[in-house]
């Protein structure tokens, strides 16, 4: 039997309460329950996390980096979205 027959799962781990889950890697498993157990076994052997999410890779819809020029507007023409764009004299604080 090969892993090709098993779906691929992406693994996300919350390292500490209050933080976001972060992608750590992937693994093959027969179903989501097994993916969760495998993820625990291979990705949290050193207390890396308090919570694990597993998601079938095929369920992830991803943008392509190659398309970034057309997909993302770099917004270089909108510097006013940043606080540093606004000139406030040094004497004024808490802004």
């Amino acid at each position: 039997m090969t892993t090709n027959e098993m779906p691929l799962y992406e693994v996300f781990i919350r390292s500490k309460r209050g933080l976001d889950h972060r992608h750590v890697g992937s693994l093959h498993a027969e179903d989501s329950a097994q993916a969760l157990e495998y993820a625990r076994d291979v990705y949290t052997r050193r207390g890396e996390g308090v919570s694990i999410w597993v998601v079938k890779s095929s369920d992830i819809v991803a943008s392509q980096e190659a398309d970034s020029a057309s997909f993302y507007d770099p917004q270089d023409d909108k510097p006013y979205r940043h606080a540093t764009f606004y000139k406030v004299p040094d004497e004024v604080s808490n802004l």
Partner: peptide, 13 residues
């Protein structure tokens, strides 16, 4: 939101 308050103050200024 860091820019929101500064743009308002700049208008006032």
């Amino acid at each position: 939101e860091s820019f929101h308050q500064r743009q308002g103050y700049e208008i006032m200024l």
